[in-house]
Amino acid sequence: MLPAGSRLTHRDEFASVMRRGRRAGRSSLVVHLHRSGDGSEARAGFVVSKAVGGSVVRHRVTRRLRHLVAPLLPTLPPGALLVVRALPPAAAASSAELGLDLEAGLRSAVRKLAAGAR
């Protein structure tokens, strides 16, 4: 589980990251990454809609994603805000597949963020 200080909790934070952040899509998820002005620790949030499945499936996907994101947060740039949006194929994906998609998406998003900062 992510510590309370590492979570995005407000709707406006999610909206800002998804609107202004760099996006990288994969088969089972989309990663949105935005850098805030402050140098605080990286924070993450998850969007798993009803299109992914019923309540049990959505919560299972969220738990898997949370478990995969927790060790990656310290590797993100300071002030990074991350939103991971699960797509319907995430329901049938294994944790290993989700992990590969997440890592590839993060690499791409970080690269896009660095290129935009120049």
Score class of each variant (00 low, 15 high):
V48C: 01
G21Q: 04
P88R: 00
A24T: 08
A4G: 05
A93Q: 05
G99F: 08
V47D: 08
A109F: 00
A80M: 04
H67Q: 09
A93L: 03
L73R: 12
L73D: 15
P74E: 06
S27R: 11
G21K: 07
E97P: 08
A24G: 12
R11M: 03
L87G: 04
S36K: 08
T75G: 08
V69Q: 11
R23Y: 15
V57S: 13
S108P: 13
G25K: 10
E13H: 08
L87P: 00
A24E: 11
P74D: 08
M18N: 07
L8A: 15
P3C: 08
R26I: 10
P3E: 15
D38T: 05
S27I: 08
H59K: 11
V69F: 04
V61K: 06
L72D: 10
S16A: 15
L8F: 07
G45R: 02
P74S: 01
D12A: 15
L29A: 08
A117V: 02
A70V: 04
D38K: 07
A86D: 09
V61Y: 03
G21T: 09
A90K: 02
D38H: 12
A80G: 00
T9D: 13
R118E: 15
A91R: 02
P74T: 01
R85L: 03
L82W: 00
V61W: 06
K112D: 07
G79V: 05
L113K: 01
P89S: 00
L72V: 05
L100N: 11
F46M: 06
R107T: 12
L8H: 11
P89T: 00
S16W: 10
A4Q: 10
V17H: 12
A93N: 01
A93G: 04
R11H: 13
A15F: 15
S49P: 05
K112E: 01
G37T: 12
A93M: 02
A114R: 02
A117I: 02
T62V: 02
S94P: 04
V56N: 11
G5I: 03
A109T: 07
S28Y: 07
A15Y: 15
R58E: 14
P71R: 06
A115Q: 12
R11E: 09
G37R: 13
K50H: 10
R26L: 08
V61D: 13
L76R: 09
P77Y: 05
L76W: 04
V56H: 06
F46A: 08
R107A: 13
G39R: 01
G39D: 00
G116A: 10
A114S: 03
T62W: 06
P78S: 00
R35K: 09
S40Q: 10
D101K: 05
T62K: 14
G116E: 06
S108M: 13
R118H: 12
S49W: 14
D38N: 09
H32N: 13
R11T: 14
L29V: 03
L102T: 07
S95D: 03
A115V: 11
S49G: 10
L73T: 14
H32G: 09
